[in-house]
Amino acid sequence: MKIRIKFAKLGYMKFIGHLDTMRYFQKAIRRAGIDIMYSEGFNPHQKMSFAAPLGVGLTSTGEYMDIEVNTTKSSKEMVDRLNEQMVEGMKVISYRKIPDDGKKAMSIVAAADYMISFREGKEPGGINIAAKFEEYLSSDSIIVTKKTKKSEKEVDIKAGIFEGSVIDDKIFLKLASSSADYLKPELVISGFYNFIGGKMPEFALEIERTEVYAEQGEKEFISLEDLGDEIP
C-alpha cells in the first residue's frame, strides 16, 4: 500500500540537510512502529522516497515523502503516532493513501509555493516593495544571471514564475519546480534587487516552502496531498 506523508520542517530544523532528514524519518518511522516495507537482501532499506529536496537554510510547511507499508491504521492514528516521535520543529501534517498505480511524488512535482521575508536591515529600502514587485513581474522578460559551477549565463526566468505577489511585507511566489524546469526562489529575488538598481546582500532572505504541486492539465496545479485520500 502506498502512503504519502506531508510534514513541516521549521525553526532550526532548517539546518538539517536532505540526506539527514531522510535518515531522521527512517528512524522516526521505526520508533513509531509503522509497518513499512523493506527491500530484500542483507542490507534491507525502507521503501521511502522524498518528493523534492529542500535546501539547507529553508523552512517548509509543505514537504512530502512517499512510503510503502504492509498494513496501516487510520490516517489520524498514524499522524498522531508519528508526531509523538517528532523533535521540536518537525511536524507530520497528513498521512494519506495514494492509488497503487499512483506515481511517485518525486516524478510528478511541477510547482512549489514559497513565502519569502527579508531579514531585518536587509530589505530593499526606500521603495514601495509591493508596487515595484508587481512592476518587476510584469516585465516582458526577466533576465537574470545564473551561476553554475563552470560558468555564468543569462537566462529568462519569466516562464518559470507562475504567480507572485506581496502580502504583508512578505513575497509570495509560485514557481516551476520540476526536475526539467526548476527555479530557485533566491534567483527571482536577486533579479528583483537588480531590477530596482541594487544588489541582494548575503543572507538577505528567509524562505519557507509552503506547498508542492503536481500538474493536472495546462498550468492547473494540485497539491501532492490532494492526490491522496484520508484513511478512515
Binding site: G11, Y12, M13, F15, I16, G17, D20, Y24, K27, A28, R31, V56, G57, Q85, V87, E88, G89, E202, F203
Partner: peptide
C-alpha cells in the same frame, strides 16, 4: 524554542551546522 548561540549567517557558512544546534532525538 531555545535560542542558538550562533546566528544563521555563521551556521549557514560553515560545514555541517547540525554539529552545533542540538535538538536531537532523546
Amino acid at each position: 524554542m531555545r535560542k542558538l548561540a550562533l546566528p544563521d549567517e555563521i551556521l549557514l557558512s560553515i560545514d555541517k551546522p547540525e554539529r552545533y544546534i542540538g535538538n536531537e532525538v532523546n
